[in-house]
Design a binder for these strands. Structure first.
Lengths: 246, 246
DNA sequence: CAAATAAATTCACGTATATGTACATTTTCC
DNA sequence: GGAAAATGTACATATACGTGAATTTATTTG
C-alpha cells in the first residue's frame, strides 16, 4: 500500500526543486489538482516542522535550508568514493552517453549517481531513478554479485512482466542471461525494460557494498558498439580504482 | 490539522540524519513505536519514490543521495549571501553564544542559518527551529520591518500565551515593546518565550527579504551585556555588509 | 538439520483523516 | 473607495487508509 500523504511530501519538494521559487497555497493546490483544504493541512504540517517558511511577504512558501542541512548529515556518512564520480564523468565524456552508479533496493536497482549525456537524444535518468533488477544491464551486474540463495530470494519476489520483446520472463531466462554475461565479460540489455534503450554494465564491488556501473543510451547509437563500450568501462575502472585496498 | 504521515516522513529522515547508518524495518518501527505494518507501508512508499535503498544485503534501508540532489536544487536558488554566514560565525566567535539568521513564517520566526555556541551551557537551536514572532527578540526584529497593516494582520492570527513572566500577552504590549526597541536601537528578550533564555537582535533586510540577526544565550551570561552584544551585532553587520547594493 | 524465534508481508475492518462546503480575509479592478 | 474575485481557513461527514491479527519467509539456536 502506498502512503499518499508521504508521497505528497516528496511531490511538493520535487515541485520546489523544479520551479525554484516560492509558491502560494493556491498555486500548489492547482498544480497538483489537490483540494485547497488538503493542501492547507499539508503546508501547515511542513511549516510546523520547520521545513517551509515565507521568504517574502505574500509570495508564498519555500523550503527552509533545513532540507539541505539534513541531507548533508545523511550523505556525509559513507559517501561514494571520489573516484566513482570521476569514473562516470569520464565515461559519459568519452562515450557521449549517460553513465551511472547503481545500487540494489529489493527487486529494483537504484541510480545513486548519474552523469547525463549531452546529446539531444539521450537516456534521461536522475539520482533515485529505479529499474527492475532482473531486466536491466545495471541490475544484472548487481545480481552477479549475489550468492545463489540470495538470488533465489530475490526471484521469489519478482513479478515477471513482458516490458519489451527481449525481457526475460522467467527465473531460468534470467539465470541464463547471467551465465551469458559472465561468458562475455559484461552485462548488456537491449530494450529489455525501456523501449529503444540499450546499455552495458559491469559489477563494481566497493568494500562490502555491491554496486555497478552502467553506460546507457539509444539502441541505435549503443547497439553497434556495446562491446567497445563495455571494454571502455572496464579499462576506466581499472585506471581509476585505487590499487591498495583502503 | 496535522498530516501524520507527512510528519512521519520528516521524522524518518531526521532519524537517519541522527543515527547515520542503515536501519531495518523492525528497528525503525521500534524506535518510533509504530506498528510494523504501518512502517512497512511508509518504507515501501519512500523506496518506491526512489528515496530509500538497501546499501548492503540485509542491513536495512538508508536514504539515497536523491535527498541531497533535491535539497541542492532547492537551495541553489537565492541562497543567503556569503557574508551573512560570516556574520553569525564572527558573532558567535566573539560572544561565545549562539548566533542565527531568522526569517518570518506566518506568526512564527524560523532559523534559517545557525552557528552554535561552543559553551557547555548554550542556546541549542538548529536550522528550521521555530519561535513565536511576537515573543522573541529575533521575531520582533522581523516585525519592525512590517507595515502597520501587515503587523495587524499577523496579530489577528496570534494566540497570545503566557510563555513566561515577561511574555507580551496583548497586541498593545507587543506594539509597546516594538516602540521601545526602536528607541533603544535593538530588540531584546528576557525569557519572553524560553525559560532562562535572553537574546539581542536587529533587523537585517536583504533585497526585498526581511530577515534578522540574533545572538542568544543563557540569561545570566547575556543579561548584563545585552547592550554591548547589540552594539557588536550592529558593528559587525556594518563591517561585513557590502557597501554597494547588488 | 529441525525447531524455535524473529522479521517481513498480507489483508479485512473500523476509525482517523481528506475533502466538499461554507465562511473569512485579502487583493484586484474599475 | 467600493464591489467582485481570489485566496486562505474552519468544520462535519463519508471514506480511504492505518493497524491488529494472521501468514509467510528468513535467521538463529540446540
Amino acid at each position: 500500500m502506498i502512503v499518499r500523504q508521504a508521497a505528497n511530501v516528496l511531490e511538493i519538494m520535487e515541485f520546489f526543486a523544479q520551479v525554484k521559487k516560492p509558491a502560494t497555497l493556491a498555486e500548489i493546490a492547482d498544480h497538483f489538482g489537490w483540494p485547497r483544504s488538503s493542501t492547507f493541512n499539508l503546508l501547515a504540517t511542513l511549516s510546523e516542522k520547520g521545513y517551509l517558511y515565507e521568504p517574502r511577504p505574500r509570495a508564498g512558501f519555500y523550503p527552509t535550508p533545513r532540507w539541505l542541512a539534513m541531507a548533508r548529515m545523511i550523505s556525509e556518512v559513507e559517501p561514494l568514493p571520489q573516484w566513482t564520480h570521476q569514473l562516470i564523468a569520464d565515461l559519459s565524456a568519452e562515450t557521449g552517453e549517460t553513465a551511472s552508479i547503481v545500487a540494489p533496493a529489493g527487486v529494483m536497482a537504484v541510480f545513486i549517481d548519474v552523469v547525463e549525456s549531452q546529446a539531444a537524444i539521450r537516456y534521461f535518468a536522475t539520482i533515485g531513478h529505479r529499474v527492475p533488477i532482473h531486466a536491466t544491464a545495471s541490475g544484472r551486474a548487481l545480481l552477479l554479485q549475489y550468492s545463489q540463495e540470495e538470488r533465489d530470494s530475490v526471484y521469489r519476489k519478482i513479478e515477471f512482466k513482458q516490458y519489451g520483446p527481449s525481457t526475460p520472463i522467467s527465473i531460468e531466462a534470467v539465470e541464463t542471461e547471467l551465465r551469458n554475461s559472465i561468458a562475455r565479460g559484461y552485462c548488456q540489455s537491449f530494450a529489455d525494460y525501456s523501449r529503444d534503450l540499450a546499455g552495458a554494465a559491469i559489477p563494481l564491488p566497493i568494500g562490502d557494498r555491491r554496486l555497478s556501473v552502467v553506460v546507457a543510451g539509444p539502441e541505435f547509437r549503443i547497439g553497434p558498439k556495446v562491446a567497445d563500450v563495455a571494454a571502455l568501462i572496464a579499462r576506466t575502472v581499472e585506471r581509476l580504482r585505487p590499487k591498495a585496498p583502503a
